[in-house]
């Protein structure tokens, strides 16, 4: 007995899991900070460049702090270019298409989650696989249709395409989310006399609110960043931020600082919201398989 306890005591002194974990934490703390900075470095570097003059931005060797910090680039981007117009278009198109996606996706996901048939699972997987079709595969037919229907370079035209593209992802996320809602509660609502619309709007939606929010946000981000259709079927009236930024790609060496400022302006809103909902995003994006 005493032998037993003393040998246990000795091994505990050498090796407790807690001490080990603590040890690891302190050791590894440094590299994790460094790694995180490396990952974000391109953005931080662009952020820095956005406060430089164009000459300072291309200086070699690069300047880290020793430059004339100024907000001129932001002033110019906001004042002189059509940044605000592009921002407006981005908000209208991404916002409108995300709302439309939810409007169509919620009833579809409701049916799949609460009134499944034998084929629901196959249908879901098939839907997701359509997402793999490169948009370019239908560029021509869409382009021709849109030309004939007058949808080229319109908010509605782009928003419809983005809605179609994001719908499978949205339905998947909503489906995974709705599956977590106990069906009995919806049945209780049905027994209580709620109509289908009331059941979805008053009972299901509030219960699935976090999931709806994260779906909306992800779809909004995807639409905000979508850069195939926005580059190809908008020219002037419906130009979004992606197209606005892409226009900097022509070799205009001396606009990098301004490009950086415009870039920062176009991504900060999405990053901030994304950071706020990262937890829901993971479970949404992995369809509830990872929480």
């Amino acid at each position: 007995m005493s032998l037993h306890s003393s040998s246990f005591g000795r091994s505990a002194a050498h090796w407790t899991p807690n001490a080990h974990a603590q040890f690891l934490r302190h050791r590894v703390d440094d590299p994790s900070v460094g790694a995180a900075f490396i990952v974000a470095f391109p953005l931080l570097w662009a952020l820095l460049a956005s406060f430089k003059t164009e000459l300072e931005a291309v200086a070699f060797p690069p300047r880290f702090v020793g430059f004339s910090w100024s907000l001129d680039n932001y002033r110019q981007v906001l004042g002189e270019s059509d940044y605000l117009g592009a921002l407006r278009n981005s908000i209208i198109i991404a916002g409108g298409s995300s709302l439309l996606t939810l409007l169509l996706g919620v009833p579809a996901a409701w049916a799949m989650a609460f009134a499944p048939t034998r084929h629901t699972r196959a249908l879901l997987l098939w839907m997701l696989s359509t997402k793999m079709l490169p948009a370019v595969g239908v560029l021509i037919p869409i382009f021709l249709f849109y030309r004939d229907w007058g949808l080229l370079d319109t908010h509605l035209g782009v928003a419809l395409l983005l809605t179609a593209g994001n719908l499978p992802i949205a339905i998947w996320m909503l489906y995974a989310n709705f599956k977590e809602v106990p069906g009995e509660i919806l049945e209780a609502a049905r027994m209580d006399g709620a109509s289908l619309t009331q059941e979805i709007l008053i009972v299901l939606a509030p219960m699935a609110a976090p999931g709806l929010a994260s779906t909306f946000f992800l779809i909004f981000t995807l639409a905000w960043n979508e850069s195939f259709w926005t580059l190809n079927i908008t020219t002037t009236d419906a130009t979004t931020l992606t197209a606005f930024i892409a226009a900097f790609s022509s070799p205009q060496g001396l606009f990098w600082a301004k490009l950086s400022a415009a870039s920062m302006l176009s991504i900060v809103p999405v990053i901030v919201i994304g950071w706020l909902c990262q937890r829901q995003l993971v479970s949404g994006l992995t369809f509830g398989a990872v929480k």
């Binding site: 391109p42 960043n225 850069s227 892409a246 950071w275």
Partner: peptide, 30 residues
């Protein structure tokens, strides 16, 4: 690495996830 980080976890995460939210043309141009 991040799983073990305790200090400034929120900020580290913000740094790490930010590239995902950058629109492709911006990423490419930077």
């Amino acid at each position: 690495l991040l799983e073990r980080a305790v200090l400034g976890r929120g900020v580290l995460r913000l740094l790490v996830i930010s590239p995902f939210f950058v629109m492709p043309p911006v990423a490419a141009l930077i």
